[in-house]
């Protein structure tokens, strides 16, 4: 029995070792990005619309931050952001992106970083869009340690702690994935989502429910809107050269 336990132990240590090796390999062999497909900027158009909600919207619930005095003292508005909808039905935090229709076009990954801030033991923003390979800078403005833990399906999972007001972490996601849940395992109410796409045609609806996707070349596309609770909706979209498209509205219903 002792021998089999020892063998199991060695096997597990070997497995852990293998896991570590795989991790370091994945970080060091980043794919060489394809050259961006040339695009005639004079032909592009923008697409705008809204995300709406009909029916009785789930009410935000109060978050209890008493587990951590540093969170409690922040005085932040401690309500959940799972469903943020105003009196007119405008639905915020919906990730809208071109799901299909871009073909094999490749796009340059922006040098600019996107920012994810932890302030008042909450994530800002609640839904973040970025391109695959783009850097997200993660800040901790709180007087407490946070864990940043994305749980992707197609990208590499990681879980790192960040000390109070610590140096920003810089991370990226190699593959398209909508949406990646991110949470803090120290503060279980801290949840947010990242939409990672391989092109720049995405947006997140604001509190007014509105979104705008700029510089889309002419073509036929599938536009998708994804909400963390209400799931995905799609619509077909035809874009003509230099003709902006508006009123591309998505309506989500109570589940």
């Amino acid at each position: 029995m002792a021998l089999s336990a020892l063998l199991s132990l060695l096997l597990l240590i070997a497995l852990i070792g293998c896991g570590k090796k795989e991790e370091s390999t994945e970080q060091s062999t980043s794919e060489t990005p394809k050259a961006a497909t040339p695009m005639d900027k004079s032909q592009v158009a923008s697409v705008s619309g809204m995300a709406m909600f009909t029916g009785a919207a789930p009410k935000p619930t109060k978050i209890d931050m008493s587990q951590d005095p540093a969170c409690k003292k922040s005085g932040a508005e401690n309500m959940t952001e799972t469903v943020v909808v105003d009196d007119k039905g405008d639905l915020a935090n919906v990730f809208v992106y071109v799901k299909d229709g871009l073909g094999d076009r490749a796009f340059e990954v922006p040098k600019d970083k996107v920012t994810l801030d932890q302030q008042g033991c909450r994530y800002h923003p609640h839904v973040l869009g970025m391109m695959a390979g783009q850097t997200v800078e993660i800040k901790n403005d709180d007087d407490t340690t946070h864990n940043i833990h994305p749980s992707p399906k197609d990208n590499k999972e990681w879980n790192e702690s960040q000390p109070p007001k610590g140096s920003p972490l810089e991370k990226n996601f190699a593959r398209q994935e909508v949406l990646i849940p991110v949470k803090c395992n120290q503060h279980p109410w801290m949840k947010m989502y990242i939409g990672v796409v391989k092109h720049p045609y995405f947006a997140v609806t604001g509190k007014d429910g509105k979104f705008t996707i700029k510089d889309l070349p002419p073509g036929d596309y599938t536009l998708a809107a994804v909400h963390e609770k209400f799931g995905e909706q799609t619509m077909k979209l035809h874009v003509e050269a230099k003709k902006d498209v508006s009123d591309q509205n998505f309506t989500f219903k109570a589940q």
């Binding site: 587990q67 951590d68 340690t145 864990n147 395992n185 120290q186 503060h187 279980p188």
Partner: peptide, 9 residues
């Protein structure tokens, strides 16, 4: 022993 707050506790 880390600060025993939140999930760390």
């Amino acid at each position: 022993v880390p600060p025993m707050v939140g999930g760390v506790r």
